[in-house]
Design a protein around this nucleic acid. Structure first.
Lengths: 349, 349
DNA sequence: TTTAATAATTGGAACGTTCCAATTCAGTCA
DNA sequence: TGACTGAATTGGAACGTTCCAATTATTAAA
C-alpha cells in the first residue's frame, strides 16, 4: 500500500486531473477553477501528501529554497541563543525555516558548516562570526549571489550587510555615567585586542575620555580574555599601577563579574569602593549581588533586524550591503555605586 | 561566465570523463582510478563546484538527506540551548546538519515546524515537545518511517524513542538528603500537574516519603506555574497550612528561586530557616546567593545521547523504540542548610 | 595468441517538481 | 454556423544527481 511516498502524480490520478493542475493548486495559482482546487486539496489531505521541496527547488534552481542558514559562534551563551530566537521569529513567520549551527568559535567548523549549508541550497545566511573570521570566508557565498548578513561582530572588509550594536556609543554612555558620579580615573578592562568589537568599544572609551577631559593614561586600558577569569586578572593589573583607577567600564558582563571577584579578593566591595560597569546585560546581570550596572543590548532585536534585512535582500534579488547599528542603553543598577546616596568617586578624587 | 551553477556535467566535461565517474568520485567509491579521482577533484576545486544535495536526495529518495530536525520548546531557556548544542555536536561530526526551530511552547507552531521539516525531507527528528504534545502529533512522522526521539519530556503513548532525565530518582535523592539533615515535614512545590515531568517528579516525592516514613500530607504538595513567580506563590501557600513544612524540594530551579524570594518576604532565610532543593541545576544556581542546592541534570549530555540514538536508528533503517533515562545527581550547595554546621531541621522537629 | 577475469568507465533512465507552449473547453459575437 | 475569445487544463522537457546494466580497457591464465 505505502509503496513509496505519494507524489503529485498520485494526486493527479486520484483527482482525475493532470499533474500540472495539481502543481498549480500547490502554488495557489488563480488559474485553477475553484471546484478543481477543492477536489485536489481534498485528495491531498486524504492521501497524506507531503510536498517535496527538494524536487521543487531543483527545478526552480534559484534562491527559492525557503531555507535560511544561521550560524552562531556560541549557542550556550544566552546572548546568542536569544539572537537565534529573534531570527527564528521573523524567519518562521515569513515561511522560511532556519538551519541553525553552532561553531564554538572554531573557524574550521564554521567553514564546514557554511559549506554544508551551501550544499543544501540556503537562500541566505545570517552569521554571528567566530573570532578571526575573515572577509575571505564569506567571499564565495557573496560571489555566488547568496545574501549574507553578519550580526553582532563585524567582519572587516566583507561586502556583506551587518547588524551590530552600537558598541562605541555604549561605552561612551558608560564612561559619562561614571564621570557624572564623580569619577576621573576610569579604566577600560578586558577583551581581546584583535577583535572588531574591542576596537569599537575602546574607541568609545577614548572618545568619552577626551570629551570629559580625563587623563589619557594607557595604563588604564588593560586587555584580557573576555571571561570571568580574564576580568579578575585585568582588575588585578589595573590596581597595581601607581595612580589607581576608581572605576572601570568592562569589555562585557563576564569580565565585569570577574572584576567584582577580583575586587572582593582585595577586600574592596564593588559599588561601594570601586564602580563597575559591564556590557551586554546578560540575564544574570540583574540577579547578581550586587546587581550589575551595564550597557543593555537587545540580542533578540538584533536577530529580528538581521532576519528582516536578509529577507529583504532575498526578495529584492540583489541589494546593496547595508549596515545597521542597533542602539544600546545604560541600565543603572548597583555596581556603579549610583544607588547608595553618596557617589564614591567624589570622596576619593 | 557564471551562467548558472556548475554541475557534475561541467566537471565531467572539463575533466574528460563521464558524469557517472564524477558521481562515483563524489561518493568516494573505490571503483575509480586514483589518477582519475585526483584529476576530478582538482577540476572541482578549480571550477568551484558545490554539491547539490537536493538533487542527490531526490534521486535517492530515501532517508539519506543528511538533515536532522531539532525542535525545542524554549531556546531562550539555557537548558534547552545546551540540549541543542549537545545534539549539534554529534550530529555535525556525523556529517549531518541540524534544522533547529523553536516552538515557544506553542503547539500550533510545533505542528507547522514539524510539517515544514518533513517537506524538507529530514531523515530524523529530535523533539523536546511543547507542553501538551500528544502522541497523535507524532503519528504521521512515525508512520512515514521517520525516526523520532523525544527528549526531556515524554510524550505519553507515542511509539517514539525517548531520552529523559531520571526525574523520579532525582526527587528521591533530594528528599532523602533533606531527611538526612533531620527534616520530617518536606513539601513538594511548583509545576503544572498535567505534565509527564510533574508526574514523574511527584512520584519520586511520594516514593521517598513512603520509604522514609514521612507524613503523607497532601497539603504539602502544592502546584503552581513552573516559574519564579509560581515558586513564590507556592511557598506562600505552603507556609499557610497548620503544620508547616521545614523544607521543600521544588519542581525546578526557577520555582526554587521563587521559593527563596517568598521566604525572604516572610523574613525567613533560605538555608538557615528553611531548606530548599531545586531541580535542573541551571547556570545561575551556582552563582545565586545563597547558592542553590539542586538536582543536576546534564542537558548537553541528553542532547548528545538523543542524537546518538537517532543516528543509530537512521542507519539501522528501522529500530525498536528505546527509552533512555539519563541519570542525575544531587549538588549540595547552600540552600539546603547542609553547609552551616547545625542542621536546621532537627532543631525544629 | 586467445580467453577469461577483473578493473574502470559509461550512457540512459529515474527521482518529484515547475515551467512553457500548446490544447481543450465554454461561451460570445457576427 | 463559424470564427473568436478568455479561462482552464495539459503533456513534455528540464533541473542535478544516483543507480543500473552495459561497455571498454587491462591483466592474468591457458
Amino acid at each position: 500500500m505505502t509503496k513509496g511516498r505519494v507524489t503529485v502524480i498520485d494526486i493527479a490520478k486520484a483527482a482525475g486531473v493532470s499533474k500540472s493542475t495539481v502543481s498549480l493548486v500547490l502554488q495557489g495559482s488563480p488559474l485553477v477553477n475553484d471546484g478543481t482546487r477543492a477536489k485536489v486539496n481534498a485528495v491531498m489531505r486524504e492521501l497524506g501528501y507531503v510536498y517535496n521541496r527538494g524536487a521543487a527547488n531543483l527545478r526552480q534552481s534559484g534562491s527559492k529554497s525557503k531555507i535560511i542558514g544561521v550560524v552562531v559562534n556560541d549557542l550556550t551563551n544566552g546572548f546568542f541563543a536569544e539572537l537565534a530566537v529573534g531570527v527564528d521569529m521573523v524567519v518562521q513567520s515569513a515561511g522560511f525555516v532556519q538551519f541553525l549551527s553552532n561553531t564554538s568559535e572554531n573557524l574550521d567548523r564554521q567553514r564546514e558548516v557554511i559549506a554544508s549549508m551551501r550544499e543544501h541550497g540556503i537562500s541566505g545566511l545570517i552569521l554571528s562570526p567566530a573570532r578571526a573570521t575573515e572577509a575571505a570566508d564569506l567571499k564565495p557565498l557573496i560571489a555566488a549571489g547568496i545574501p549574507v548578513v553578519v550580526a553582532v561582530r563585524n567582519v572587516p572588509g566583507a561586502k556583506a550587510s551587518s547588524v551590530v550594536s552600537d558598541n562605541r556609543e555604549g561605552v561612551v554612555v558608560g564612561v559619562e555615567h561614571l564621570v557624572s558620579l564623580g569619577h576621573r580615573r576610569i579604566a577600560f578592562l578586558g577583551g581581546f585586542r584583535d577583535t572588531a568589537v574591542f576596537d569599537e568599544r575602546l574607541a568609545g572609551y577614548r572618545a568619552a575620555a577626551a570629551v570629559c577631559g580625563l587623563d589619557a593614561d594607557e595604563d588604564l586600558i588593560v586587555d584580557s580574555p573576555p571571561s570571568r577569569a580574564g576580568g579578575a586578572e585585568a582588575i588585578e593589573r589595573a590596581l597595581s599601577i601607581g595612580n589607581r583607577p576608581t572605576a572601570a567600564v568592562c569589555f562585557n558582563d563576564a569580565v565585569a563579574f570577574g572584576v567584582c571577584d577580583g575586587l572582593r579578593a582585595r577586600k574592596l566591595e564593588p559599588g561601594r569602593d570601586f564602580a563597575v560597569v559591564g556590557f551586554d546585560d546578560v540575564i544574570e546581570a540583574k540577579t547578581a549581588v550586587p546587581a550589575l550596572t551595564t550597557i543593555s543590548v537587545d540580542p533578540q532585536g538584533i536577530g529580528r533586524r538581521a532576519a528582516q534585512l536578509l529577507l529583504k535582500q532575498i526578495s529584492a534579488g540583489k541589494a546593496e550591503a547595508e549596515a545597521i547599528v542597533s542602539s544600546v542603553r545604560l541600565v543603572v543598577r548597583e555596581t556603579c555605586g549610583a544607588a547608595n546616596g553618596s557617589p564614591l568617586g567624589r570622596t576619593q578624587a
